[in-house]
Design a protein around this nucleic acid. Structure first.
Lengths: 174, 174
DNA sequence: TATTGTTATACTCTATAACTATA
DNA sequence: TATAGTTATAGAGTATAACAATA
């Protein structure tokens, strides 16, 4: 009955304010919305390539550490093994990536850019930098570096090990 | 040949720095990584519910504007019509959401929380607020409000109309 | 035994198109 | 004609589990 009294006497939006939760002030939700905006900008800039942001990340990483294997990609992108296998397959199908078995470890795939991939990556990098600049133009000039740094801090707060979740007793602490 | 010279004489990571593009300073990539961290924290906090961040967003919005239809959800969440239909169906299956045809417009579904949904939403809101607090703890205290505001700015820079992409001549402008 | 990679499976989200029924 | 919603289809990304080959 007390619940009914609360529901009846207080609009949900006011309840939201009362307990300090508002969707449009919620990091979780804003992060998603911001990524929607970023992905939309990316899609517009890369529409002729059929490339996704994740596929570009893989190309960039292989470009930076040519000869890495798929585990290297997992570590660098946060994408898991099976998704990585798919991504690599899609990029090979596009002719941008190639792989061969490592000489020193027959389990391991050595990844490298194809000649075409190496050429295209240069223009992809420029485009991605432009998308980034465009996104940052939504922010006041003085706040851009701080925003990128803050994103980096949140991005790196969760190691892939999964142990991080268990460590965060903050959730239960209140 | 000049390309080969560049590739041979300069490591890719240095090229990245030269043209101002670095994956770990890239908004596009950091936004994704940050969301991975946020989703992981969310999943840990909501593991007993089977709820996804998007499903929670729908519940919150219906809670704030009970009686909205699915178009209202599309506008509030940025999720498209067909995804929204799926989301609503999943939430109905969980017994959290109910809908009926609108009296004034027989095409329109009026959405409302079930009694169970209304009760659970209160605890969901608290949990989401805790996840948010935890994420923000990765940032220096003085930068939190600014970060949330910056996220909001990027989130709202792309209207759903799609016209926004065409408007952004910045991409070609350089 | 542990690691690398693959495959199978499943689910969420996204997106488009075609469709029904209403307006 | 336009709108609200559904359905079908497709693809991307994520996740788990099981597996083969290798270390």
């Amino acid at each position: 009955m007390s619940r009914l009294a609360i529901d009846g006497g207080m609009r949900a939006v006011d309840q939201a304010k009362a307990n300090g939760f508002d969707l449009n002030g919620c990091v979780l939700h804003l992060l998603h919305r911001a990524q929607q905006a970023a992905d939309e900008a990316f899609a517009a800039a890369f529409s002729d390539t059929g490339l996704t942001p994740r596929q570009l990340a893989v190309l960039v990483i292989v470009g930076e550490r040519e000869g890495t294997n798929q585990v290297g990609l997992v570590e660098a992108t946060g994408i898991d093994r099976s998704t990585t296998a798919d991504l690599v397959r899609r990029l090979m199908r596009k002719g941008l990536l190639a792989r061969r078995r490592a000489r020193h470890d027959a389990r391991s795939n050595v990844l490298r850019l194809t000649d075409e991939g190496r050429v295209l990556l240069e223009s992809f990098r420029s485009r991605a930098a432009e998308v980034d600049r465009m996104l940052l133009e939504a922010l006041p000039e003085g706040g851009r570096a701080g925003f990128v740094e803050a994103l980096g801090r949140i991005a790196t707060m969760a190691p892939l090990t999964g142990g991080a979740v268990a460590d965060r007793s903050l959730l239960a602490a209140e």
